[in-house]
Design a protein around this nucleic acid. Structure first.
Length: 306
RNA sequence: CGCGGGGUAGAGCAGUUGGCAGCUCGUCGGGCUCAUAACCCGGAGGUCGGAGGUUCAAAUCCUCCCCCCGCAA
């Protein structure tokens, strides 16, 4: 099938490569413009652009989708179908109607749960035991189109959003290819999203970082593993400046100490009392200006007096 | 030139009124102990990120470069 692919971050790359591997003709790749990022504000091409160029595909990076020129480029490319995967732009209606076989999207949640920008993170933060990927039609309303295919995966209570992300990205590519086959055969089923089950996964921000030690050990652990590596979770109970927490583990230990009290600090980690009377063990953290390190390493230069 | 923090022993950090290179952990040797990740004694381990400059004297002051981290999502 002749396809235009639209995507931007790492999550979209396996989908693009799966399409290519399945033998489809990708006649153009749309991705966000290179943006000044990182230290020094160096211009950085998005991951999908790098992947597209590695495969020698024509790349388009319009600043605007609604000024007509993007539509003109798409007409020239003449795709049968547009595949969107975390492109980061809302497609105008005229583009949605351009390809004869429509526009489909790879979304990293079990829709209708977690519509929006950060579905994987929120599934982990909320302690969900399951998530998945959905292939759906692109509709006018964000992430609201009919579901074409869906597959789920368990979330291990200890794994981080990074590992779930990578797994879902791979699964998304696979499911996408299967769905493309069904579309070609014309036997794809459309299932409308149940409005009663809709939830949203808003964009992450640094405001989510500070730990409220009055929460339970498991809740805090979910926050930590759901927000790595950005914006990460932080606390100021160890020093004046907040440190970022990158890894922790809830323990079976019970305590009557005030939430936020450091109970012990040694080579196995830093034990902190939580709101439910359980203890969370901090395993990996980062002081301001420093790099991520194991708790034991941190303690050598930042001793904690109990 | 986007803003800021940092680079000192294997690890993590102190140390800038310029004046012998420090701490904790680790490591090696010895001791104590029924025993130990505990404790005691001793030792090894550094081109202080790199290059230049100022100075009698630079980790410390000046210039340039390299690398790491945070902000900016």
């Amino acid at each position: 099938m002749k396809i235009v692919f639209m995507g931007t971050p790492d999550f979209a790359v396996p989908s693009l490569e799966a399409i290519l591997e399945a033998g489809h003709e990708v006649c153009g790749v749309f991705t966000q413009p290179d943006k000044p990022k990182n230290r020094g504000m160096k211009l950085l091409p998005p991951p999908v652009k790098r992947a597209a160029m590695d495969h020698g595909l024509p790349v388009f990076q319009p600043e605007q989708l609604r000024d007509g020129s993007a539509l003109e480029q798409l007409r020239t490319l003449g795709p049968e179908l547009i595949v969107v995967a975390a492109y980061g732009r809302i497609l105008p209606e005229e583009i949605l109607h351009l390809p004869p076989k429509g526009c489909i999207n790879v979304h990293s949640s079990l829709l209708p749960r977690y519509r929006g920008a950060a579905p994987i993170n929120w599934a982990v933060i909320n302690g969900d035991r399951e998530t998945g990927v959905t292939i759906m039609e692109v509709a006018r309303e964000l992430d609201a189109g009919d579901i074409l295919a869906q597959v789920s995966t368990p979330i291990d209570p200890d794994e981080t959003v990074e590992s779930v992300h990578d797994r879902l990205a791979r699964m998304g590519g696979k499911l996408l290819v299967q769905t493309l086959e069904e579309i070609e055969r014309g036997n794809v089923r459309h299932i409308a999203q149940n409005p009663a089950q809709v939830t949203y996964a808003p964009m992450l921000s640094r405001a989510l970082s500070p730990i409220d030690w009055n929460k339970s050990a498991v809740e805090i652990h979910n926050q930590i593993r759901g927000l790595v590596p950005w914006p990460a979770t932080s606390t100021d109970i160890f020093s004046r400046e907040p440190v970022k927490i990158y890894a922790a583990a809830p323990t079976e230990t019970a305590t009557k100490q005030q939430p936020g009290t450091v109970l012990s600090a040694g080579k196995d980690g830093i034990d902190v009392a939580c709101g439910d009377g359980r203890v969370l063990r901090i395993l990996e953290l980062q002081a301001p200006g420093g790099r991520r390190m194991a708790a034991a390493d941190y303690l050598r230069g930042h001793p904690i007096t109990l």
